[in-house]
Amino acid sequence: MDKDATVFIIDDDKEVREAIELLMHSIGLRAKTYASAQDYLDHFNPDLPGCLILDVRMKGMSGLALQEHLNTLPLAPPVIIITGHGDVPMAVQAVQNGAANFIEKPFNEQVLLDSIHRALDVDAKQRGKALKKAEIQERLERLTRREHQVIEQVVKGERNKSIAKKLSITQSTVEAHRARAMEKLEAKSLSELMRIMISINPE
């Protein structure tokens, strides 16, 4: 679990959000409270790891609407929905939207805490993946255009000879490009190169 992980508490009821914040502090978790969905969005920082505790019925933007909005972002933090009048359709919608959990008020604090831990784990994993992807992307960008073309053919399984023919260059040039590209992508073998390429472009 990331030490910087923060629990973002969004509830229009001050007492409730402060109580939850207190609970977070009591177990040593960092917490931030927001009175409305808009307030949260205004201070939203995608680089901050953590998860959301989101009340459904709020003035202004509802919890479910905020959840939907976050889903459009590349890196959405996990969301735990809490509600004072949970009904089935609402729960179904929330879970379909990818909610980590749906908890009715008043809740057992242990249930909430477990949910938070799971959500933070999920977030950390998401963030790790995203970081690696960004790194590879950065390495790819270091390749020249020619190196890029050569690597593309290599990934498709073409041999050096046919690559040279296709790109109308000599085979030795192909080999040179290939070696340089492997170096730049920090791939020690062909299989590693393949893994790197598939991780950024699964198809």
């Binding site: 009821d13 409730v16 109580a19 008020k105 008043p106 809740f107």
Partner: peptide
């Protein structure tokens, strides 16, 4: 709401 706050 108050119940939640109380319990928490």
């Amino acid at each position: 709401q108050p119940l939640t706050a109380i319990a928490t």
